[in-house]
Design a protein around this nucleic acid. Structure first.
Lengths: 215, 215
DNA sequence: TGGTGTGAATCCTTTCACAGCC
DNA sequence: GGCTGTGAAAGGATTCACACCA
């Protein structure tokens, strides 16, 4: 029984890229754009861009292309970023602190409303406008703010525990920066970013191109 | 003419996951493991694990599984992390500074040997053991250390310029954290991480599961 | 002419299923 | 009995190619 109307993960990723490109165009006051223009900037094909969009409707104008601002609105609606998301940050070490200060999140519709850490040393410290809270207060803050998303920047050893705590507190989506596999409870979606792995992938590409043929 | 002996990008990514899992097992003094054990932890199938490894050789023992430490060595060799890579960091804002302090890079074989920033305010500041250098010194440092990889954490507007400077200085692989599409010159490989996009992907998943059927 | 939307064809990846081995 | 390695089959994703529209 193939449940065949699912959207490929790769398509969702590319929609985010399109949104980013379109936003740049809009900032430059460009009003319309073709699928091949967008594709060119991103190293994709024009057919790919049109197919990706076709999953969600017909947004283009034959002979013209796409209206930039109109397509931005559609993409935001599709991605669910037409409204702001309240996000909590768990783990306030170097990386967590840097992310709390990162402008790009707010710009794309994600606002950090609480910062938490298990270490008593860090609780009470200020990070920008935020004050680091103890983990005990997580559930209260999540329910008060209605946050659905948590960004987790704790050491690998504590990641699974924190995931479970976050889920119990009502979190429904997790962006995980810990370098370990985590299991999200049913009903909770998860997206992991392992920074070291991104370098390993580069290393592989650099290594294999040195020995060009398999032989 | 299909050039069919290429390794899928997804396979490389999973190899990195396998290495991470195996390292955890090795730390626990576990000597052998089966493909289904590894797959289970990562939410994959056993056949997938075996197929991925089969691109590179036969590493398993029928009836037994894989020798953990042996497979770790093979994976490191395949990924090119059996030796350390010297890496330069360009852009020393919040994120760059956090990455400079990140332990996970060193642990996986990547050592940051230089930090650079275009802003005169930051040049001369200390980040851990490193002193932030001016961009003028990039080429000299790259050729002195033989670095092949750059991690780029500059604002989107300057990303492409920095990429070109890095490539001219002799860099061959770029890990890009700037939230913009960059074009790497021929012979330079590139891997981009857009943190906001990872949250957008989560947002999509949370949004679509709310309206379960397409209808 | 320049561009979209989309079935059909191709290409790639994953899963199945089983021979062979310890 | 348990597990690997691997052809064959199935399933998805991308590209092609063209009808159609402004």
């Amino acid at each position: 029984m193939p449940q065949s109307n699912a959207i490929p993960k790769a398509t969702v990723f590319r929609l985010c890229l399109y949104l980013r490109e379109l936003t740049e165009l809009s900032d430059k006051d460009i009003k319309t754009v073709s699928s091949s223009k967008v594709a060119g900037k991103l190293g994709l094909t024009d057919a790919q861009v049109r197919k990706d969009l076709a999953y969600f409707g017909q947004f283009g104008y034959p002979g013209v292309g796409y209206h930039v601002d109109e397509l931005i609105d559609e993409l935001k609606r599709i991605l669910g970023t037409n409204h702001m998301w309240d996000v909590v940050l768990i783990g306030c070490g170097n990386l967590g602190t840097a992310l709390a200060a990162y402008k790009g999140f707010d710009r794309q519709g994600f606002h950090i409303v609480g910062a938490f850490d298990a270490s008593a040393d860090r609780v009470g410290q200020k990070i920008g406008e935020l004050t680091v809270q103890s983990m005990d207060e997580l559930a209260k803050t999540v329910s008060r703010t209605g946050s659905r998303i948590a960004v987790i920047c704790v050491p690998g050893e504590s990641a699974q525990t924190v995931v479970d705590q976050a889920a119990a507190a009502g979190i429904r989506g997790i962006l995980n920066f810990a370098a370990t596999a985590i299991t999200a409870p049913p009903g909770v979606v998860q997206n992991s970013v392992d920074l070291a792995i991104r370098l390993e992938q580069l290393s592989f590409q650099l290594t294999k191109t040195k020995q060009p043929a398999k032989r």
